[in-house]
Amino acid sequence: MEELKNTLKQQIIESLNLEGMKPADIDDNAPLFGEGLGLDSIDSLELMVLLERNYGIKIEDAREGRKVLESVQSMAEYIQQHRTI
């Protein structure tokens, strides 16, 4: 799980071009949107594509997507349960 979370943080940094950030700077449980990393709606689309490309996960339901993208912890848990690649 720890390895998955670190990989995921690195992927988030690269995909969202979070300049000057390292995986250690992202708290597992900090909210990704609003406070915390301060991401926005375009970032949420980028994260959905990240999940599809890297883990074969396609989230169709917006409500479910909102829950999954709450934090790195929630994303990692969802990936562990639903990944197809």
């Binding site: 995909s15 375009i42 689309l45 980028e46 594509v49 599809e52 490309r53």
Partner: peptide, 13 residues
């Protein structure tokens, strides 16, 4: 590369 699937929005916008 992605066979017209899972396209990121930023470069399109």
């Amino acid at each position: 590369e992605m066979n017209e699937e899972a396209l990121t929005p930023t470069s399109f916008i």
